[in-house]
Amino acid sequence: MSIRPELLEILACPQCKGPVRCEPENARIVCDVCKLAYPIRDDIPVMLVDEAQTLSN
């Protein structure tokens, strides 16, 4: 999984529009506010709320 840092900067949660962080080891992008994890498939982040996994505390 490779997301260049400068491109992660122009990525936001589609729900709250807030910042997200990359978890390369889990191949996902995480929004800590919405507690949603967006999967990365074939190096393409799937930034759809419907496809996101809800994170448990």
Binding site: I10, L11, C13, P14, P19, D43, V46, M47, L48
Partner: peptide, 28 residues
């Protein structure tokens, strides 16, 4: 599209995001 652009060669500044045009996942 990723395959197509890769086949064209020499283009390395395009990245792809699956996103809904009505809820774009980008900061303002």
């Amino acid at each position: 599209a990723q395959e197509f652009i890769s086949e064209e060669g020499g283009i390395e500044n395009v990245t792809f995001r699956e996103a809904d045009a009505e809820d774009l996942p980008f900061p303002a």
